[in-house]
Design a protein around this nucleic acid. Structure first.
Lengths: 145, 145
DNA sequence: TAAGATTAAATCGTAAACGATTTAATCTTA
DNA sequence: TAAGATTAAATCGTTTACGATTTAATCTTA
């Protein structure tokens, strides 16, 4: 019992710290592009599927409009994307990548890649971590209340 | 190469989301105590070692004064702890837990424990995750720049 | 079709989190 | 010992992040 509490504490702290470490790593790598880590995650999502609504983007990133709206406004101001209210349903706002985001994709990806590779993470390590994290994430999300 | 980029993206996203999920879980569990998740981490650290300076606390939690000072001020206002400037070296400020923090420790721990146990995480799962996370955390922190 | 429900985004207030700067105290060393 | 370096917190400005509320559009259904 006492052991369980210790483990819980260690685990939540380990996740907390690793996330914060990722944040710092990406933030510094993205600095030359005037991008933050969460903004990069938005780009990642849009590079995969462009022209989605704010709601759809929020579902993919698990973020609400309280976070997304101001962030997208900043990204629009910096020329990464464009917000366009739907004519068919004026409640919805579509997000479209701007040319800049497509042009810089390779350069951004390269820098991040170089940065991560400097950590020397093995393929096997990736896979195990991913599997465990997804397992945990799933359990956290779908727990019985 | 392309595969590596995909893995990186998935990994950083998985860490990001899991941390955010932990945050939500703890935040809701701690609500009755009027505590936030980062504030709980502060308590965890102080329950282990009380009466430390802001700097020492920051090192344990990997947080700077820009984060800690206002947070500790809020926690002081809520009666969890006390800030006391050192007489011997007036640059330093010691943090001491208040009675409330000691009295409520058990109740807080119990709620968190119950919450986490509702996720049905196996002991083996804990250990594997911890090991992998610490390995990653270590590599992120000590990478060659 | 009009009233009420639902939906999508925006807005608001609070709390982290970071880097950079500032302030004040202490330490070094010339 | 006085000048300059170092240290510890506090402060500042910006960005996330969340829940709650608001606004406006669309949908349901009586």
């Amino acid at each position: 019992m006492e052991e369980f509490i210790l483990l819980e504490n260690q685990l939540c702290f380990a996740v907390y710290e690793t996330a914060s470490e990722f944040n710092k790593l990406y933030t510094s790598a993205l600095q030359p592009f005037n991008l933050t880590y969460p903004q990069y995650l938005v780009l990642l999502s849009l590079w995969e599927t462009d022209s989605v609504t704010v709601k759809e983007l929020g579902e993919k990133l698990s973020l609400g409009t309280g976070t997304l709206t101001p962030m997208l406004t900043r990204m629009e101001a910096n020329g990464w994307l464009r917000k366009e209210r739907s004519k068919a349903d004026e409640r919805r706002v579509f997000i479209h990548l701007e040319a800049k985001a497509l042009e810089q994709k390779q350069a951004i990806t390269n820098i991040i890649s170089k940065e991560i590779q400097s950590c020397h993470i093995e393929l096997e390590e990736y896979k195990q971590l991913m599997e465990r994290l997804n397992q945990l994430h799933h359990k956290l999300k779908n727990r019985v209340n």
